[in-house]
Amino acid sequence: MIPATFDYAAPASLEEAFSLLEQHGDEAKILAGGHSLIPMMKLRFASPEFLIDINNIPGLAHIKEEDGYLKIGALAREADLEHSELIRSKYPIFMDATKLIADPQVRNMGTVGGNIAHGDAANDHPAVMMALRAEVVISSAEGQRTVPIDEFFYGFYMTAVQPNEILTEIRIPVPGAGTGNAYHKMERKVGDYATAGVAVQLTLDGDGVCTYAGIGLTNVNPVPLRAARSEEVLVGHKLDEERIELAGQYASEDCNPSTDLRGDEEYKRAMVKVLTKRMINKAIERAKS
């Protein structure tokens, strides 16, 4: 399979990329890792007339803490997360997630930014970013704007990124003391999309009272979903078995999975409940250690 004909440029600066976007409008697509875009182009589900390869633009591949945020640049690969000492030591949720994203070769190319910008609720990072309450930095010739992750996903393959804009960075508030997080997805085999996936981040104070809860769900809703009622039932309380059970129950009620080859709706709701409880318990364990 070979993509339809297109033209290509690899600008050396964001300014050049913006002017190419200006010129080609919504006929242009941004190429970062390309591991969602190129398969779609090979299948002719997508046939952009122009590809703007941003890989030659310096200053977009960082993973660093700065000004109270973990900042992930648009060109940071999944493999860069896996091998980052900062991520290994402080952000176990990304170690959980990257291991389950596709396979090592794909992770050598695929970017975290692309995983989000693709706008697919089946991808894993959207739920993780919801649990961590990330912000997405979107840049254009006019400047920069920051969009909270809750306002980023508009619909299937549709996000807040406009045709003249580029996702340039993801910012995650550095978690305070007593924070733990975890992610797991059920997959039928390596590289499959999630049957269901759940990301959880919790902060516990000295008395074990939950002061922060973030819960994101993968592939059980048309857009990535925050399990808001589950978060509410946890915050302000000590997390006993009953509350965790309720959080799992609410998540399974509030999602909207569709029946497909990975399972029917009822099964997926049941899996959301189980995974939510497990990830809460894992996050508590990590918060305490």
Binding site: M1, Y8, A10, L31, G34, H35, I38, P39, K42, D53, N55, A79, A102, D103, P104, Q105, V106, N108, M109, G191
Partner: peptide, 29 residues
């Protein structure tokens, strides 16, 4: 497979293993 699944097309690009059915030749410039 020609669909990024099987890995038979794996080569190293600047030392990193990648599936060459899902990378454009022009990206290797």
């Amino acid at each position: 497979c020609d669909t990024t699944s099987c890995g038979a097309c794996t080569v190293l690009l600047n030392g990193k293993s990648i599936k060459s059915c899902t990378v454009l030749a022009i990206q290797a410039d």
